[in-house]
Amino acid sequence: MSYFGPGHGACPGCGLTIATRNVLEALEGKCFVANSTGCLEIVSSQYGRSAWGVPYIHSLFENTGAVAAGIDLALKALKRKDEGKVIVLAGDGATADIGIGPLSGMFDRNHDVIYICLDNEAYQNTGNQQSGLTPPGSNTTTTPVGELLPGKVGRKKDMVSIAVAHGVAYVATASVAFHADIRRKVRKAAEIEGAKYIQIHTPCVTGWGIDGKQTILSARLAYETALYPIIEYENGELTRVRKIKERKPVEEYLKIQRRFRHLFKHPRGKEIISMLQKIADENAAKFNLDV
């Protein structure tokens, strides 16, 4: 496993790098990476100190879907498609907010690209500001907890449905809690021609307020509470879900993270917790997660 790192500058216990290593491992390094501005880019691409062992490009924060499309087109035109797969590694902010236009274009034109959203649920590179994929209740610097407000009040954007609605042939979620599953999904995506979307839950120790020892635990709890369903769509059909043996109450996930700690004492905390529980219950029902 020598396609990424060591010597990168990520915080100890960072989930992004775990996901990245497994994605590259799945493709055995035969890929082109387009990466958006964000934590992964900053920790890995300082001049003369690249952590990458595969061809890599970073252009801007919000254009990575299009940059990857360009690589795909160039490989086609130059008859070099056999060199490897084109993948995007982009943050949740880059994906769901600022770069959703180019992402939509890439999906729509159905470029042969595996778009991987590394979802750490906020703009972590710039110090934990809310994104469209920040869950309700999260304390970020732009949705701070105050006398009135209990952190983020809005919902987490449903990127999976957005991808499916574009007719993307393969759409999946994954989590660093299940490393073999990441590799399997990436390999599967690599076999399918056209656009693919995989969203990987990648805990951020700094922004979430957890310890490296809790990186995998928190990712696992997100799955076990059904707040982060692990699912797969093929050609628009839900084809596979990771079933949950004994679903846990959302509090178990929330209480170990600093970003949610206020929910246990804020006047609106209960309301948010029950909203999150409702989301989890709906996920469980929608995807039939409970065994």
Binding site: G5, P6, G7, Q46, Y47, G48, S50, A51, W52, V54
Partner: peptide, 13 residues
């Protein structure tokens, strides 16, 4: 600004 692969190895963390 092209960089060589794995040049981060000089950063002993």
């Amino acid at each position: 600004g092209v960089s060589k692969p794995h040049s981060s190895k000089t950063m002993k963390t």
